[in-house]
């Protein structure tokens, strides 16, 4: 599904990702871990097409298409979803309206008709019920005045509505208390199918207690220094990042 080949990328001319290669197949969950500044978030931002981040070398193929030639809107429509670390607040824009716009943008791009507002409301209610979310998420404005946990839950709701092929969750666990973490993780697990894939970007292993990765990659100084399975994350937890970064 996704193939990253010798990717170099950075911001404002500073190279942060220095040659990453990674292949992700459908049905797989990959966790990308690493200390602060190792390039985890830069990787996420390059994948979703953030305009401030530029790829300076290598390539990314998504279902055979050159991702680096697509802008953020096209990547989303192609089936990539980014769950942001700090979702932005948009005052005045109703959350349900926003979700409907996003849902319709997908339908229109697939050559389908826009969904009727009432039908969408039904769809939304259903998804919210599945995720165990309160009705207030419909009525409030997009992330406006949301707590950290509410914002992350709202990201998962968007993921549920958009049904992406590949989701990248950037530090989704940061700033969450244990209850919120569990709700978010359960939501993510419910959205898993054998056809979609997930990249979890995280600093800590605790998220991986709830969402079990098939692969764990450790990033250091812009490169993958070690790959393994779930056991690697536990080893990191007990021995710290120094263990891998100095071992290479």
């Amino acid at each position: 599904m996704l193939e990253i080949k010798d990717l170099h990328a950075g911001i404002d001319g500073n190279e942060i990702v220095k040659g990453i290669s990674l292949a992700i197949n459908k049905g797989e969950i990959h966790a990308v871990m690493g200390p602060n500044g190792s390039g985890k978030s830069t990787l996420a931002k390059v994948l979703c097409g953030h305009p401030s981040y530029a790829a300076t070398g290598g390539e990314i193929l998504f279902e055979g298409k050159n991702l680096l030639e697509m802008d953020a809107e096209e990547r989303s429509l192609a089936g990539i979803f980014m769950g942001f670390q700090y979702p932005v607040e948009v005052p005045g824009v109703n959350n349900a309206e926003f979700l409907r716009m996003a849902h319709n943008a997908r339908r229109v791009s697939a050559g389908e008709e826009e969904i009727d507002p009432l039908d969408f409301d039904e769809l939304l209610s259903e998804k919210m019920k599945t995720l165990g979310m309160e009705i207030k998420y419909k009525e409030r404005n997009l992330n406006e005045g949301f707590s950290g946990g509410e914002k992350k839950k709202n990201e998962i709701l968007q993921m549920a509505i958009l049904e992406p092929k590949l989701s990248i969750l950037d530090e989704t666990d940061s700033g969450l208390d244990i209850d919120a973490l569990r709700v978010v993780a359960e939501g993510v697990n419910k959205l898993r199918t054998e056809n979609n894939a997930l990249i979890l970007i995280t600093h800590y292993q605790r998220l991986l207690d709830y969402i079990k990765p098939d692969f764990v990659h450790v990033l250091s100084a812009g490169k993958i220094v070690k790959s393994g399975d779930k056991a690697l994350a536990l080893q990191l937890e007990s021995q710290g990042y120094d263990w891998v970064t100095t071992a290479n």
Binding site: G49, E73, L77, V88, P91, V93, M101, S109, N141, L162
Partner: peptide, 30 residues
Amino acid sequence: TSRISEDQLFYFESRGISRENAIEAVISGF
């Protein structure tokens, strides 16, 4: 006082919503 920011528009775009529709949504919300 609020601000319409590049970050807000990028957020919309990352959900597959065009920049034009994003501006329209933010402005009409305001």
